[in-house]
C-alpha cells in the first residue's frame, strides 16, 4: 500500500513535468512596488492603447503606489472606479490588425507557461533577412514588436528591453491575482497553526491509545 503512494506521487510528478513544446525563457517576477509600478507605466504607454484590463480599476493602481497625478492623467474624465478599457475601440483594432487585442487582466495565467510565456513572447520577435518581423513563441501573432526587440542590436539596449518586459510581466502577474501576496502570507500562518495543532493531536492520540492494553 505504501508502494502505491509512491507510484501515485511519481505519476503526478511526471504529469506536471510536461512542459509546452516551445522552450520558454524563465523570468523571476518582481513583487516589489517599484517593479510593478514601472510595469504599470510601461503598460499604460505601450499596451493600453489597444489592450484593455477590464478587471483592474484606476483606483487599484493607487494601491500599487502609482503617483495620483499620473493616474489622473491616464483616466482623464473617467471616474476612479472605471475599468482600464483600451483607448482604441475594438472595431478599429480589428480593422488595423485583423484580430481583436485580448484583454490582459488574466494573461499571466491564461497561457501554458504563465509569466514565462508572456515574457518570452514579448522578447520573441526577430527580423528575417527579407525584412519582415515574426515571433517564434506565437508565430500567428498580429501584434507589432512593441518593445523593439527585433531591432535591438546592442547588448545594453537588449538588456533594457528585457528589464522592461520583466516589469510588464510583473504587473500582469499582480493583475491576474491581486490577492496572491496576501494569500501566501496568510498561508504561512495557516501552515504554522496546522503544524502545532496536528502535533498536539498526535500527542493526545498517543496518550489515549496508551490506555489500551
Amino acid at each position: 500500500m505504501n508502494k502505491f503512494m509512491m507510484v501515485l506521487a511519481s505519476c503526478c510528478l511526471a504529469a506536471s513535468a510536461l512542459a509546452s513544446e516551445v522552450k520558454l525563457d524563465t523570468v523571476k517576477v518582481g513583487i516589489d512596488k517599484p517593479t510593478v509600478g514601472r510595469g504599470v507605466e510601461a503598460m499604460m504607454t505601450d499596451c493600453h492603447s489597444c489592450h484593455s484590463m477590464k478587471y483592474i480599476k484606476y483606483r487599484d493602481l493607487l494601491s500599487l503606489g502609482v503617483d495620483k497625478k499620473k493616474v489622473d492623467e491616464w483616466r482623464g474624465d473617467q471616474p476612479m472606479d472605471a475599468a482600464l478599457m483600451a483607448q482604441m475601440p475594438e472595431a478599429d483594432a480589428m480593422a488595423a490588425y485583423g484580430s481583436a487585442p485580448p484583454d490582459l487582466s488574466l494573461m499571466a495565467k491564461a497561457r501554458e507557461g504563465g509569466a514565462n510565456y508572456v515574457y518570452s513572447y514579448l522578447l520573441g520577435y526577430y527580423t528575417t533577412p527579407d525584412g519582415t518581423t515574426h515571433n517564434h513563441i506565437f508565430p500567428a501573432t498580429k501584434m507589432p514588436d512593441i518593445l523593439g526587440m527585433s531591432n535591438a542590436k546592442e547588448a545594453a539596449e537588449r538588456t533594457a528591453i528585457q528589464g522592461k518586459a520583466r516589469d510588464i510581466v510583473s504587473y500582469l502577474v499582480w493583475a491576474s491575482d491581486p490577492h496572491a501576496q496576501e494569500r501566501q502570507s496568510l498561508g504561512y500562518y495557516v501552515m504554522g497553526y496546522l503544524f502545532v495543532l496536528t502535533l498536539m493531536l498526535y500527542f493526545v492520540k498517543n496518550q489515549i491509545w496508551a490506555k489500551l492494553k
Binding site: G187, T198, V204
Partner: peptide
C-alpha cells in the same frame, strides 16, 4: 482522535495547494 490527527495531516497537504 486518530481521525482528527489524520485530518490535521490532510489539512496541511491541502493548505499547501490552497495557499501556495
Amino acid at each position: 482522535i486518530k481521525d482528527l490527527y489524520g485530518l490535521g495531516l490532510f489539512l496541511m497537504l491541502y493548505s499547501v495547494f490552497v495557499f501556495f
